Structure formats: C-alpha cells, structure tokens
Computed example of a mutant assay.
Amino acid sequence: MPFQDTKNPLYGSGRITEVAPGVRSIGLQGNSLAVETASGLVVVDTGPSPDLVAPVLDQLREPVRWIVYSHGHLGYNYGVPGFFDYAAAHGERRPAVVAQENVVRRYQRYLETAGLQNHINTRQFRRPMADMAAPPPITFPDQTYREALTLAPDVRLLWAPSETDDVTAVWLPSQRVLYGSAAVINGIPNIGTPMRTMRDTVRWADTLDRLAALNPAVLVPEFGPVVREDPVRQLTMTAAALRWLRGAVVDQLNQGRRVDDIVHDLRYPAELFDVPWMREHYGHREYIVRDIVRSETGWWDGNPTTLHPSRPDVAAAARAEAITDKQAVLDQAERLRGDGRVQEALHVIDLLALAPGDDPLVKQARAVKQELCALRAAEASSYVSRSFYRSGW
C-alpha cells in the first residue's frame, strides 16, 4: 500500500516501479532498489521505519538475500529490523547487511553526536524533537567493502564518494542500469548544507565522471524519476558544473576576495546551471560556494570583531543599548520590507531582534523578524533554506 509523509521531502510514496526486467525501484526514503538474483533479492535501502516493510515485501514476493546501504545518512535504513522480522516470520534466512567500510565510522560518529544530529534535523526537516530517536536505531553492517564488491554475477557495488564518503552505487552491467545512490540526487549536488560537515566538490565530480564512464543506458537517482534519455550527459555535465564552481571560487580567493563578495558576484554559465538536473529544490549553488571557501580558508569571516567575539546575547544587548531611537530601526525595516528588500530588512531588524530582555520594542522587532523570515522562506527555492527560515533563530 503506498504511503506518503508530506512533512518530510525525503520520504517516498511506497510504490514499486519496474526499471528493467528483474529491477524495481521502491519509494521508501528516496528511491530504494530491488534486484533479482539467483540467490534472492538485493535490496538497496530499507527505508525510514520497520512499519513500512511488510507491505513492500509482500509485493516483492521473493526472499531478500542482501541489504545494501546506499550511504550512511540516518533514516535511510531504519527499516532493517522489519526485514529481519519478516524473514524470521516466513522461515527465510536473515538478510546480510552490506555497506562501504566508511559507514561504520560514520555510524559511530552519529552515536557519539546523537543529540546534535537530532537538533540539526529538527531545524532542517522541521520535525519536533519528540520524533527524533536517541540514540538512532542504527544497524551496523555485517560485511563491508572498500572499492568494489560483486554480490552476484550481474550486481556490482561501487564506492562512489560524493554526498558522503561511504556512498555505494550499484552497477548492473548486462542491462546497463546504474543506481546512482547519493551521488545522483536529481538536483544540484547537496554540498555545503548550512549545518552539515564539508563535502568535497572535486571528489564528487570525479565520482560522477567515473560513473559516466560505465556508459549507463538507465540511471536511477537517489531521488526523482528514472533517467533514460542520455544519462551520461547528465552525469558529465553535473561534474563539469562542480569543477567550474571549484575553479571560479578559487580564482576569487586568489584575488583576496571574501566569501560574501564571491557569493554575490559570481555569474554562472547557463549551459551548466540552467538545466533540469541542477534545480535548487534542496541544495543551492551558494551553499557550494561557501563550502569551497570554508574548505580553503577556515571559519573566520575576516572581520576582526568576530575573531574573539562577546557572547551573542551580550553583543546584541550592547548594540540595542547604543540605539537611542529604536522605533527608527523598526520603521526602517518596515520601509525596506515595503520596497521588497526583505533581506536588507532582516539585517536592520537584527539590530534589535537579537537582544535579550522584555523591552516592548525589542519584542516587536522579534515579531517583525519572524514575519520577514516567513517572506524569505516563500522566496527560497531550496527546501533546506525554507526550513531554516521557518525554524527560528
């Protein structure tokens, strides 16, 4: 039975769709994959909950021999216990869990930082903390590999470092079907997400070029529809866009430019960025620019004031105290909003909105900021940006 969680953009429909003979995609968390072999099914990603498993396996009607993790991000394989329980209930052998070796280190880090991950996810996905499991229900793999692993004569697992350093792509050579996993997300590569660790832009491009060299006829992305029309072009052009970003940002850094100037001054080639597979519905080109800068220059923005700053509430209180006409700040923010200059209005209102205390004008500024953030959310193409605008500060 199809399901849909409209609150989380990562959740799929639960539908099973034939990609090629013996190959099906499953809408669990993104596109999962089921591949028939003589030894049983290979299933890539078990989805966000054990409760979703039984209806899917009832439709597949074959024992699952292997569960493969596409990558180590939380949620994609919370359904593993459901697969184990289903196998036991039907007298079948427990599926073996296979992943690229770096998944183990990632899972260990997630257990160490479980509280942090939950706080990030409440903001990025606008979910209540009560929905977040602590610790996360992780199942470690039974078997890992480093570069490549053949599970069956026509099922080859390939290390594809990209969004994470533990991504597994799946190549079915006889049918030329490629499951791109987290390396191919049907949108601009998810690099530089505001609250995540850095992702290597050039390494992602290298991975896409290696996958393109396989010459797939069919490409199954982690999200979105199956690509049957010139998938090699999509892979190579995305890689070219990432290399362009790296080169353009480094050129600006070599001229002594700062990150905010680079973000606003770059001009992006339409042939690389104004294409369907580079839509900014989740990630954003500005995120990538900032991640490249961060990878080369560290965390400091170059302003001496922020090198060893005061506590945020202390600094905000000092700014607010220095403003003798607080109503003028509110009035200017409203004028900017009326002129459609919402981001500039946010910069102005922060002179008051971040201050502690119960001053009526400060409280009014906080309310104005909330309204301005809602306007910016409505303007934003990226789901992540919309989430952070709406999640408070």
Rank of each mutant, 00 (worst) to 15 (best):
E371N: 06
G40V: 08
L52H: 12
D260K: 09
F84D: 02
E229R: 02
V368Y: 00
V362M: 08
M129I: 14
R376K: 09
P225V: 02
P356I: 09
D291L: 04
L10I: 06
V80R: 01
Q370T: 13
S391K: 00
Y76T: 11
L354G: 09
I288N: 00
V289Y: 03
T144D: 03
D350Q: 14
T207P: 09
A355G: 07
L52S: 07
D51N: 15
Q29T: 12
A212M: 03
E296S: 09
V259E: 11
A212R: 05
L211A: 05
I292G: 02
M237D: 12
Q343H: 11
L330I: 15
Y282V: 13
S70D: 10
V220C: 02
P194R: 01
A217G: 14
F125Q: 12
E280L: 02
V293N: 01
K326P: 13
S39V: 11
G392D: 01
P225R: 01
A96I: 12
G22K: 08
A34G: 06
D358R: 14
D325C: 13
D230I: 00
F223H: 08
L266P: 06
A205Q: 05
R246Y: 13
E344M: 09
V23L: 05
P136N: 05
P9E: 06
R106H: 11
R246W: 10
S310E: 11
G283M: 04
H284V: 06
G72C: 08
L272F: 05
Q332Y: 13
Y76P: 00
Q175Y: 02
T306Y: 12
P55H: 12
P153V: 04
T297D: 04
A241D: 04
G392F: 02
L33N: 00
L214S: 02
N303C: 11
D265F: 06
L352D: 12
P48F: 06
T324V: 15
T306W: 14
V293Q: 01
R311W: 10
P128F: 08
M129H: 10
A134D: 13
N215F: 00
V68A: 02
W300I: 09
Y389W: 07
P135A: 10
A148V: 10
P136H: 03
W300P: 10
D209S: 11
K7H: 11
G283Y: 02
F83S: 03
V259T: 15
P356Y: 04
E101D: 11
L235Q: 07
A333L: 03
Y76I: 14
S32L: 06
Q364C: 09
A183F: 09
N190W: 08
S381C: 10
R15S: 08
A378F: 01
V42T: 01
D230S: 06
G340T: 08
V68L: 01
A378W: 00
P276C: 06
L272I: 06
L245R: 03
L178T: 04
S381R: 13
V56Y: 10
N121A: 10
A99R: 04
P128S: 04
N31V: 13
G27Y: 11
L351W: 09
R285D: 02
P9D: 06
